[in-house]
Amino acid sequence: MDITIKARNLKRHFGSTRALDGIDLDIPPGRIVGLIGPNGAGKTTALKAILGLSSYQGELSVLGLNPARQRDRLMEQVCFIADVAVLPRWARVHQIIDLTERLHPRFSRERCMHFLKNSKVRPESRIRALSKGMVVQLHLALVMAIDARLLVLDEPTLGLDILFRKQFYSNLLNEYFDEERTILITTHQVEEVEHILTDLIFIRDGKLILNSSMDEVHERYVELMVRPDQADQARALGPLHERLLFGRHIFLFESGDIGQIKALGETHKPSVADLFVALMGTESAPALETAE
């Protein structure tokens, strides 16, 4: 199977700001990739380039197509949800479904209706009369009813209640995802997606800070919890990051001497959120140098 997204030295400048500063990416099919970064890190710029919505310098190929020139052909295989729900407000639900069915060769009306079954979205409703959450539900149903090879979700669950968010990620994993497909997600609600991700990418100031599979992440990083009296010993091993929790010191290490680390206290896998803070946080600026 071909590589789904391949980027070499991908760049984008807005004036003097480097939104993308020479990114290399290889995303194979069958992955669920989380693209995580603070606001203004270049996430949306990268997604827009991949979707053919903005210009860029460097090499980029998505499913073997050039997104900037072949957006219309690319969209037969790719579907996306932008950061806010942007369905046309004048349309009725059944009109949007009809249009998508006529314009998209890989759309299935049955699947769409199946995903809408449990929602309050009615075919006769106008989009402008739906609540924000209902618009998102409709948009997600439309997108998941498309048999695409790449699904790009930019903050997909913004404005949804927790029940629907859980439901959505469970649908995504159980009914949508398979080895042929790739899903690329950006979100601020990292905890919700971390258990479904297969790959993790951290981006900051247009550069990739981390780009590896979750398995590698778990091999490479370890979190150690120690009592205060052992903190200095732990510091001596060169942690990336240190924080305090209920009087305990929690250190994050990058693939050090695991035996030594384990001897000091309790170790476990760091959560993506903690890893994010450790690698991207401002407090640990010197540590970042090693991470890069």
């Binding site: 969209m75 579907c79 942007v86 369905l87 046309p88 060769p105």
Partner: peptide
């Protein structure tokens, strides 16, 4: 809503 229209082929 241009983002929706641009998501169609």
């Amino acid at each position: 809503s241009i983002l929706f229209w641009k998501s169609l082929p």
